[in-house]
Simulated scan of single mutants.
Amino acid sequence: MDEISVLHEAFGADEVPNQAVEDRARAALQQRMSAKEQRVTSMDRRRRNRFAITAGVAVAAAAAVVATVAVVVTGGAGVTGGVDHGPAPIAEPTLGSPAKGVLPFARPASAAEYLENAAWTAERRPWTDPRPGQFMYIETLELRNKPAYENQHPNDPIRPDLSENRKIQEWWSVDGQTRAGYRNGRLVVTKRGEGGEYWDRIAWSTITAMTSPDKVPDGVPGPGSMGVVLDAFIGQYVVPPNVQAAIFRHLAQAPGMTVNPDAVNIDGRPAVGLGRIIEGYLSQELLFDKQTYQFIGERMVAIKDHVTHGDDGDNVSHRGDVYRQVIYAKMIIVDRPGDTQ
Rank of each mutant, 00 (worst) to 15 (best):
R159W: 12
A209D: 14
I158C: 14
V239K: 05
A254G: 01
D218N: 05
A252T: 04
G219V: 13
A148K: 09
P223W: 14
G219T: 11
G219M: 12
H153E: 00
P241R: 00
F233H: 07
V189I: 15
V220G: 00
R192E: 03
V228G: 05
V216K: 07
G235S: 11
G196K: 04
R186T: 04
P240W: 15
P213M: 10
Y198Q: 09
K191L: 09
Q244N: 10
A148C: 02
D214R: 06
D231F: 08
P157Y: 11
G193M: 02
V243N: 10
P217M: 11
P160L: 08
E150K: 02
S225R: 04
L187T: 02
L187E: 03
A148W: 00
G224R: 12
R192K: 15
M226C: 00
W172S: 09
F233Y: 06
T178K: 06
D200Y: 05
P160S: 09
P160A: 09
S163R: 02
E170D: 11
V174P: 06
E150N: 12
P221Q: 05
V239E: 02
D161K: 14
Y237H: 12
V238W: 04
G227W: 00
H153A: 07
G193I: 05
V220I: 02
Q169L: 07
D214E: 14
D214S: 07
Y198M: 10
A252F: 13
M210D: 13
E164G: 02
V220M: 03
G224S: 14
R144C: 13
A252E: 05
G176Q: 10
V216R: 01
V188N: 12
M210Q: 14
L230R: 00
A232S: 14
L251Q: 02
G222K: 12
P241K: 05
V239Q: 04
V243R: 00
Q236F: 03
G181N: 11
W204G: 04
G193W: 04
M210F: 13
A232Q: 15
Y198D: 02
Y149Q: 02
